[in-house]
Amino acid sequence: MSSPIHNRLPVLRAERGLSRKALADAVGVNFQTIGYLERGDYSPSLELALKLSEYFELPVEMIFSLKPFEPLSRIATQRDQ
């Protein structure tokens, strides 16, 4: 079984005030697919990952990772120090 792929989709979506449906429409999938992705129930195809990367204007590795993402609060604390 392949290792789970972690993602920052909920954070990115919240930042931009997007509903799942709006994001789903933007990348051409059903809105349930975004929910599945956010919960880590499924790993996206390369095509969908690149579409999301293009939509958010971020590198793919900023959205998806094989390791859990560090919480933003910790990153901010480290930056302040």
Binding site: S19, R20, K21, F31, Q32, I34, Y36, R39, Y42
Partner: peptide
């Protein structure tokens, strides 16, 4: 297959 219900609750019932 994982459940769909959480998505339906949040984003409307047009699934």
């Amino acid at each position: 297959m994982p459940d769909l219900e959480p998505d339906l609750a949040e984003d409307g019932a047009d699934a």
